[in-house]
Design a protein around this nucleic acid. Structure first.
Lengths: 137, 137
DNA sequence: GTAGGTTATCTTGTATACAAGAGGTTTATA
DNA sequence: TATAAACCTCTTGTATACAAGATAACCTAC
């Protein structure tokens, strides 16, 4: 019988907790949360995505996305438009403010990534990423 | 410039998401969430812990613990008592219901751990755990 | 013995997360 | 072209998470 301390679900939860806290602190100057930033990164990859497509790319429920989108719209980072072809679809675009900041935001995320991994060798980094990507039930 | 898809914060968040979902599904029959179960595992390790000590062991804010504790008390899994020596301290004990179920709950957590790791070799499992434990800013 | 600092917990406010269901839009099909 | 089926988004309810402040109990120095 192993302790919860050695359970991968627990270990993973706590590593995730530390990673989130690190990124959160670095995004504080922008008044953006990690998820809000990630949402915008998806739009940087492809602007004008639908809410559902954003959810598929960053693996989030539309119920969760609704709140994040609301706050991003209120803060002026993105705007929401109904698709002209399909009235069901809500498309999201970066505003000028969003476009102006997205490069710096991406750098912040990348810097966080590098700092979190700085204690590991190149082999360990690749291995960790591979194991986590393969990780599923 | 790397994509958010290769960022360790994102990869970690999604692996965590899958692990939580897997454990959550297995705990459904008990009407317990992963965090509620983890809280009880801490008490199995040492019954009568204070709220603060539980928070240190499972790395959770007392604000978060308050809600979890409330729900566990309401459902009859644990009881809350003020320490006889120190009126500030709230001690938590497993009830009879809690004690009766904790073994099965621990087995469920362990089974989840095993299933999540079944695709990995023994070496990979140890490596993954070590890398995640070392993982910090 | 009491003022003042420390400690432990609780409360409030904000932000994820997801299940489940509602509502509106489009598409398929008879 | 009705009408059912499918699709997309939004809303509601529950459960983490944490920051910041409030509250109550304890302890220390004088």
């Amino acid at each position: 019988m192993i302790s919860y301390r050695d359970n991968i679900v627990f270990i993973l939860a706590k590593a995730h907790q530390r990673a989130q806290a690190s990124l959160k602190a670095r995004l504080q100057p922008f008044s953006l949360t990690p998820m809000q930033c990630l949402f915008m990164e998806a739009l940087w990859e492809e602007d004008g995505l639908s809410v559902g497509e954003i959810g598929r790319r960053i693996a989030l429920d539309t119920a969760t996305l609704a709140g994040i989108l609301d706050r991003l719209v209120t803060a002026g980072w993105v705007r929401r438009e109904v698709d002209s072809q399909d009235g069901r679809v809500a498309r999201v675009y970066l505003t000028e403010k969003g476009t102006g900041a997205i490069g710096t935001l991406a750098e912040t995320m990348e810097q966080t990534n590098d700092d979190l991994l700085k204690g590991f060798s190149q082999e360990e980094r690749l291995l960790l990423k591979r194991l986590l990507k393969d990780f599923r039930d």
